[in-house]
Design a binder for these strands. Sequence first.
DNA 1: AACGCGCCCTGTCCGC
DNA 2: TGCGGACAGGGCGCGT
Length: 274
Amino acid sequence: MPELPEAETIVRDLRPRLTGATIVDARVRHADILNPPLTPRRLAHGVRGRRISGVSRRGKIVIIELQHDLRLAINLGMSGRVVTSDAARAGEFRHIAVTLALEDGRAILYDDARRFGRLALHTPLSWRVRDASLGLEPLSNEFTAERFRALTRVSAVPIRNWLLDQRRVAGVGNIYANEALFLAGVRPTRRARTLTRAEVGRLREALRNVLVRAIAARGTTFSLYRDASGEEGGFYPALAVYDRAGQPCPRCGSGIKRIVLTNRSAFYCPTCQR
DNA sequence: AACGCGCCCTGTCCGC
DNA sequence: TGCGGACAGGGCGCGT
């Protein structure tokens, strides 16, 4: 997907554009992106006439906050994109699954070629449950080296896979997991519990560093990602290892290796990462 | 019960 | 130009 930096970029774009706007209708073209028990009818009924009170993020989830403490939670999957209709260039968004019409004539478009994304409409209670199922926010003060270490100590999975598990740390996906492991000098295959205290400390710093830099660059466009203005992210050229198999390591010049861990690519420098 | 795997679906790219 | 296979920022449900 869109990982944390891409979701954050979308949220920052949407917030000033949508806060205070009122949704007047919801049209669903692909009902399979609605998270059960949400249906087109329930979505329309739930959002119609409601004012947008804010836009926020939890992990990779974009949250459109509505009057009466309702939350429209948008998980973008691999190819999900949220744009406002005034920003969407004609012809570029050909897989619009949901359209939320606004009172002022604009609309919020949810476009998703692969339809792996999911929309959920949360009450305060159901949101509390969902929120509790997600792990630490890596950019928050709660993401301390001590907590991070306590979580890694009890898992035998390869650290790359560990980083992708949203129940432990929320928002990290395959690109930034690989980039952070490179910056920390840790091989993707290392079992989480074998990381030393120093490595966990470095990995924490690396994660925060790469996420902050990626947000500053407005995210990474690998192929389909666009921000809420319809623009590509600028972080791709800054990637050190992701999608760089065979290319020289930016630190030592060794060839970057690609391996497969649980059916997903991992990239690393065989010299710099141990 | 933690973990790996297959699968969801469409688009793109590469080799033949 | 066409076709098959591999691959793609994710995550759920299943079996072990």
